[in-house]
Nucleic acid binder design. Structure first.
Lengths: 239, 239
DNA sequence: CCCCTTAATAGTCACTGCGACTATAAAAGG
DNA sequence: CCTTTTATAGTCGCAGTGACTATTAAGGGG
């Protein structure tokens, strides 16, 4: 009850764990670091670390994100608090309470070795199993949360660069959800939602693609989708 | 990271804070306790307390819920982890990291004095302002989360007793959302969602109400609402 | 240079879900 | 017997959307 002299309390170690997600080659990838020491030495784990004395969990998460990705500016990146994992046995050494975050990156930096991690790699989501601690669960929760928020928020643009085509935006949905979407219907829906995307004044993408050049869009001011873009899959996976 | 010998770490106090919500007289109420000591002595606060050494946050939250409500069995009650509040200045005495939960009660127990709280009261949500610490924000977050989850989950039944009428279920939505809903449309929507509610074999509520006796329903096995029950208000508040 | 492929964009059609509304049924109270 | 209250049944029309076809504009290969 908030009365420190009425109840003894145990000190806990508090960490943040980050599920850093991005899209590489039309597949959802997650940033993993190799553990160099026990426990779980040699296993892959989510990046993370301890809270410093004057940090909030959000501040610590953004600091870790900058360290691990090597990116100079992480201020614009979407950071989402998932939940806190506090089961007594989740770290075999001591009580560690961990606040988990999901981070969404538009352009993944190269397979780097930033921060103090021995090794860091982008791993396809489907191959990221057998992680250290309870990180399998944290990663699954991150994907669930992001997938759900795609339905009723404008979160998808967080996976896209500043200017993007509707095809790229659609591929975000298809990749995270693992379903194929009808292109004209997706287009109609996105453009009918005010503030979701806005066209870049006078531009079209030309020599890059194979087909007809697509118009470029920017993320709009809207944050919620009304009505939502519901997950109703067709049969196949995206080509 | 996660290498304890590479980085020093600060020990933190970890608490849980509970936004215990219920419906009394067609108004959303929250359980508050009066603080007896500094800081915020005399102010109202959300119930909560420290994690014990062998407890997860969920376990501690359920223990606190039982202590504060005085209920013998809290196993069936819905407990929802909101998020973790960890800003450095949120407790003036020391670093306290708090995992916040929302708890939903069907039948509120009488204005009790359970647990070790000096005084505990049910307070209408609209009058619960000026709480201690950052509890105003936690409470607002709780209401937002519950309101949002009513849209796309079957959470509303957590506010109802084991057997309830569709009118009671509708009043949950109207009270939490603060909007009036069309009764025939609500009924059609709920009954069209498989697994949301199921009729009690042979029962109807008789002498209690004023009008035609309503059929009784139980919560069904479904957990998600597809498609969702979107918040589209009419003009007035419920009578 | 023509044609095939690829991808973006435009448009159609029908069905579903839902908001708005009206009508009927079954109780209590005066 | 009437009014009031609440539950239940049903109707109508529109918006959103799934499924589908057509057209446009690029690149690549013969």
């Amino acid at each position: 009850m908030h009365g420190y002299d009425k109840h003894a309390f145990e000190p806990f170690a508090v960490t943040v764990d980050l599920a850093v997600l991005t899209l590489r080659a039309d597949a959802l990838h997650v940033l993993l670091v190799a553990r160099g020491q026990e426990p779980y030495a040699g296993r892959w784990a989510l990046p993370g670390g301890f809270l410093l004395p004057d940090e909030s969990a959000e501040t610590a998460a953004r600091r870790e994100l900058a360290e691990e990705t090597g990116l100079a500016d992480v201020t614009g990146l979407h950071l989402e608090q998932l939940r806190t994992y506090s089961e007594p046995g989740r770290d075999p050494r001591m009580r560690v309470v961990s606040v988990a975050f999901a981070a969404l990156l538009p352009d993944p930096p190269e397979p780097h070795g930033g921060g103090d991690a021995a090794e860091a790699r982008w791993v396809p989501y489907d191959e990221a199993r057998g992680l250290a601690f309870d990180h399998d669960r944290i990663l699954a929760d991150a994907r669930d949360r992001v997938g759900a928020k795609l339905e009723y928020t404008c979160l998808a643009t967080a996976f896209c660069p500043a200017e993007f085509t509707l095809g790229e935006l659609q591929r975000v949905y298809e990749t995270v959800w693992g379903t194929a979407l009808d292109r004209p219907n997706f287009r109609r829906k996105v453009l009918a939602t005010p503030g979701f995307v806005e066209p870049v004044p006078g531009a079209a993408r030309l020599t890059g693609g194979r087909g007809k050049p697509a118009a470029l869009y920017r993320a709009g001011p809207a944050t919620a989708l009304h009505p939502p873009l519901l997950r109703t899959p067709r049969e196949g996976r995206p080509a």
